[in-house]
Design a protein around this nucleic acid. Structure first.
Length: 108
DNA sequence: ATGATGACCCAAT
DNA sequence: GATTGGGCCATCA
């Protein structure tokens, strides 16, 4: 079992229509200060968005703390997926974190 | 084992 | 607000 599995599990807890930052996910996953690992873990997903167990991971709900899409691989796809969930993106490709940032609370 | 890079973040300039 | 420097750990050559 890789450490990434914990990251994937945390990313899955992001409710639809919400977003989170790499650092936030890292903190929730018990990897505070290791935001790069989250980015690396999501990078390992690549296209398909499934982990080693074949479970889907909402990788598009993870952006950087600046509210912008950091990845250059699927930037367009990520933007479309975010907009599909009702997340408004600024004219400068920025997202209002205070408005959409997931505070870590469990929905339900 | 070493060096370089990376879907990042924070602080300083 | 854009750029630079340091820190964190995993992966590749």
């Amino acid at each position: 079992m890789n450490s990434y599995q914990h990251i994937y599990d945390t990313v899955r807890r992001i409710p639809p229509g919400k977003i989170s930052s790499y650092g936030r996910i890292a903190a929730l996953a018990g990897l505070a200060g290791q935001a790069r690992l989250v980015g690396y873990a999501l990078h390992a997903l690549r296209t398909g968005g499934v982990d080693e167990q074949g479970q889907p991971v909402p990788w598009w709900r993870v952006i950087n703390v600046a509210g912008r899409i950091s990845n250059e691989y699927e930037a367009t796809l990520q933007r479309e997926l975010l907009e599909a969930e009702g997340i408004a993106i600024d004219a400068r490709n920025a997202i209002d974190l205070e408005r959409y940032l997931w505070d870590g609370a469990v929905a339900g």
